[in-house]
Amino acid sequence: MPKLIDAEKLLWWIKDAMNELPYFCETPDDIAKYRILKQIRNLTDAGTFDPTPVQPDIHPGDMVRGKKKALYHGAGIGRVRCIFWDAEGHWADLMYDNGSMAIYPLDELEVIANDQPTEKA
């Protein structure tokens, strides 16, 4: 479990630390501190360090379908081949009974229990 911090407290701390630097950063150390603090502040403001949202409990081998009917265009239920992530989020690589494959965001899929009907949409 990642350690969560309060971004607002961090931003206040950065502001205070920047205010403690000399008005004109003359030494290389002061310039480096200012640049690092400014970069951390900008990245924090941009949401770079926001926690990853909780992902659905989907694993390779699970049978899944799209939460939105338009998502799967009648392809129906697929089996998760693998799960991967990139800068844009978490994804599932699916294989359908007809041999077609697709990649969908994990948060747009739901697991189908073994006792649920598996008819095509």
Rank of each mutant, 00 (worst) to 15 (best):
M1W: 02
M1S: 10
L4V: 09
I5P: 00
D6C: 08
K9C: 05
A17L: 10
M18L: 10
Y23R: 10
C25E: 08
Y34R: 15
R35L: 12
I36Q: 12
I36S: 09
K38T: 14
I40F: 04
A46F: 05
T48M: 10
T48I: 04
F49N: 03
D50P: 00
T52N: 02
P53M: 03
P53S: 06
P60T: 01
P60I: 03
G61Y: 05
D62G: 02
R65E: 14
R65F: 08
K68V: 11
K69W: 12
L71P: 03
L71C: 06
Y72D: 15
H73K: 15
G76V: 01
G76I: 07
I77N: 09
R79Q: 15
V80C: 02
C82Q: 12
I83C: 06
F84T: 06
F84P: 02
E88M: 05
H90T: 13
D97H: 09
G99D: 10
M101I: 04
I103N: 13
I103P: 05
I103L: 11
L106N: 11
D107Y: 09
E108F: 09
L109M: 08
V111K: 15
I112W: 08
A113F: 10
Q116G: 02
P117N: 02
T118P: 00
E119T: 10
